[in-house]
Amino acid sequence: MMPIWMEIVVGVLLVLSSLFALIGALGLLRMKDFFQRMHPPALASTLGAWCVALASIIYFSVLKSGPVLHGWLIPILLSITVPVTTVLLARTALFRKRMAGDDVPAEVSSRR
């Protein structure tokens, strides 16, 4: 059986991560500009995912009374895959906005 303070720690971590996810969604909805909207989703994929992974590690380790570490794979996987999509999406947005003639910086590499 789990000690009560362990359940409190797991519950607080889960609620904290869902709060971060909610703030991320709120930012996605409320921000005015596309590049501003790219920032809030990072909340859920960093601290939100860390909190859930930590909660899952604590919970399963106590439940099976031994270290169960596979929760760590989620933050590691996210920290590899999320930058790839984010950088590609940022480049896409820059390209499309330049094509449309919006107010974005010109290409940084000088043409020779």
Partner: peptide, 20 residues
Amino acid sequence: LLANAILFSLFLFSLAMVLT
């Protein structure tokens, strides 16, 4: 206690999904 905390966080996650 933990069951309610999990239910509450699931509710917040689904709210975030609706906003998205």
